[in-house]
Design a protein around this nucleic acid. Structure first.
Lengths: 226, 226
DNA sequence: AAACCGTGTCACGCATTCGTAACGGCCTTG
DNA sequence: CAAGGCCGTTACGAATGCGTGACACGGTTT
């Protein structure tokens, strides 16, 4: 999942944020001061930065500006943590373009919500297909609808996700582990054979359209290319 | 590129918005009060208006209404700037049809994103409907009125918003989190199960028309397509 | 003050869905 | 041809998701 850089000089604050973001399924990198933050931002190129305004030596504002100036990091969304509401205007408004802010003390849930929100917004720009059509099989992601020969097929949430993940990677074989990652998220506690069962249910429901789902013995599963 | 009219009485705010929109490649015209805004809207016929709600003399709501009434300007998309989340309902819902809103303080990048978004939608010709009719169910958004089989149904503000959000995205499944975002607005940290409760109340009040509201297990809710 | 309304949360129970184990067939390999 | 892995299939207990009723809280009305 996405990697997030958390910058704060108070270890307690870092830990709090880290714990909650990890619970939400994000990977977390931390830094305790401005220079370390800049170094790690370049090294890890995180998907987002959560940045405390008050930092020793190089403060948050500086870090923000520098990140924005460097083309390698200028695209990374930044959420500012600030103690004073009065500073908000400067943070958001002025030359440094933070994308959102949270005033301390903040609720962990709120933080996670804002992070998710920003993540989604960022994705909006990259194009991802939300509709697939192969012969008699149609997959409509936003409508959560699958039809075979015009007839609606009722899939459960996991079946649907499994199908779309395979469809999005059409032609490429996906190992069971890969599928567990992408369909079941990071729940690695699951038996790989579970995938088989779901594939079976999926094929059963798809009927004749099941022929688009290949089994690659010893490797995994694949959605046929055309 | 497209021309955008920015209306705000605080010079700092205007400058901020202007700078960011220009950076994004738009041409910008500014106005500091309502009458100036109306004058410039007619003179330049901009492709979009970014309009502060709080203005001296003629306020943003008035400007919005007048722009909508005049055929020469009624087609121009309007983005409202507002300080209070509570005002959002009035802005979007009621007699004046603003196309989007941003609460202050806002991130410049968010503003630009929304502007781009609206620009695209204008081209896409997807118009936001303010009246829905599906069999015996009629939803009149500007009038805040819902009828089933000609009989009026009293909905609370949240119920109504929930219904209209679903209706506007007819056919597409909306996750609980999505609905919390769009119905309950940003600031709230609400349990996702709350959505269920409101759905239940909504269905109860809608009676037989409740069949238009699908539950998609493991995913969210959906207003049926036809 | 009392009553009411709109709202958010909780707990319970049911139905569906999920994950796993077990078995048996098929393909591969030697 | 036999053995061993790999996969499809079946069945079943566990877990989950959702609808529902009840309740608490704050704001407004009576």
């Amino acid at each position: 999942m996405a990697k997030i850089l958390v910058v704060d000089d108070e270890p307690d604050a870092v830990e709090l944020v880290e714990f909650n973001l990890k619970s939400a399924g994000y990977e977390v990198v931390t830094a305790a001061d401005g220079t370390e933050a800049l170094k790690k931002a370049r090294a890890h190129s995180p998907a987002m930065v959560v940045l405390d305004l008050m930092l020793p030596e190089v403060d948050g504002l500086e870090v923000c500006k520098i990140l924005r100036r460097d083309p390698a990091t200028s695209g990374i969304p930044i959420i500012m943590l600030t103690a004073k509401a009065a500073e908000i205007d400067r943070v958001l408004g002025l030359e440094l373009g933070a994308d959102d802010y949270i005033t301390k003390p903040f609720s962990p849930r709120e933080l996670v919500l804002r992070v998710k929100n920003l993540m989604k917004r960022g994705k909006g720009e990259e194009e991802k297909k939300d509709r697939f059509q192969l012969g008699e099989l149609v997959i409509d992601v936003p409508r959560h609808l699958v039809t075979v020969q015009g007839k609606r097929v009722d899939l459960t949430a996991t079946e649907f996700k499994l199908l779309t993940v395979l469809a999005q990677r059409r032609g490429r074989v996906q190992s069971r582990e890969q599928l567990l990652q992408d369909v079941w998220q990071y729940d690695n506690l699951i038996d790989t054979r579970t995938v088989d069962t779901h594939m079976r249910r999926l094929r059963e429901k798809l009927g004749r359209a099941a022929r688009y789902l290949d089994t690659v013995r010893g490797v995994g599963y694949r959605f046929v290319e055309n």
